[in-house]
């Protein structure tokens, strides 16, 4: 290293020290008050008419367990080969007296190991019995906003499984999020990790 290079290096070091001293010298603090008030969930899960009723196979039932505040649901079903349809397993109830909510479903952990020609769907019906949409349980995706769930109204959830014979019996777990909002932005936000 020659003299010129040493000078340059010393000058850069001095400059860096000077900038650091200046940045550390002033800090501004603004106040934000956030008041958090919990509210009872306006949309809840409710067991369907066939929840915990007999399922296929000895001793099996359509097991539906709701969380302590009905904001989560765990479902176990026992389909067999060919086409199995589960009627009215779960409901999504808007128990808000006045407010309607936009509703979407998002598959966050899809079934991945089933045969390609198998089908696993969660089928959403309106309270009037009209089909609203299918949720493909074999693909990680969301439905978009499927509709505006009016106050004191509900969606009914059925399940449809097609599993071709000649394969090992179906199994696995799929995770689905129910998403609802008073607004309907063009894209459904993703939760932070």
């Amino acid at each position: 290293m020659n003299k010129n290079q040493k000078r340059t290096l010393l000058a850069l070091a001095a400059l860096a020290i000077a900038v650091a001293v200046v940045n550390a010298s002033v800090f501004a603090y603004y106040q934000i008050d956030v008041t958090i008030t919990g509210v009872q969930p306006p949309v809840v899960f409710v067991a369907g008419n066939n929840a915990n009723k007999a399922d296929l196979g000895a001793g099996n039932s359509i097991a539906v367990a709701l969380g302590a505040n009905s904001t989560s649901a765990a479902i176990t079903i026992h389909p067999t080969y060919q086409h199995t349809y589960y009627h009215d397993v779960l409901k999504v109830n808007n128990i808000d007296r006045n407010k309607a909510y936009y509703v979407a479903f998002k598959v966050t952990s899809a079934i991945s190991s089933w045969p390609s020609d198998s089908v696993a769907k969660m089928i959403i019906y309106s309270s009037g019995g009209s089909k609203v949409t299918d949720v493909d349980l074999k693909a990680n995706s969301d439905t978009g906003w499927i509709g505006l769930l009016d106050a004191n109204d509900y969606y009914r959830i059925d399940f449809y499984i097609y599993y071709p014979e000649g394969n090992q019996l179906p199994g696995g777990t799929v995770q689905v999020q129910l998403i609802y909002s008073p607004q309907n932005p063009s894209t459904i936000p993703t939760l932070p990790s």
């Binding site: 066939n50 007999a54 359509i62 060919q82 086409h83 349809y85 009215d88």
Partner: peptide, 14 residues
């Protein structure tokens, strides 16, 4: 089906 009238769980064979 597990219950009459096509309710409950129904299986369809071709």
């Amino acid at each position: 089906c597990t219950v009459p009238g096509g309710n409950g769980v129904c299986v369809y064979y071709p």
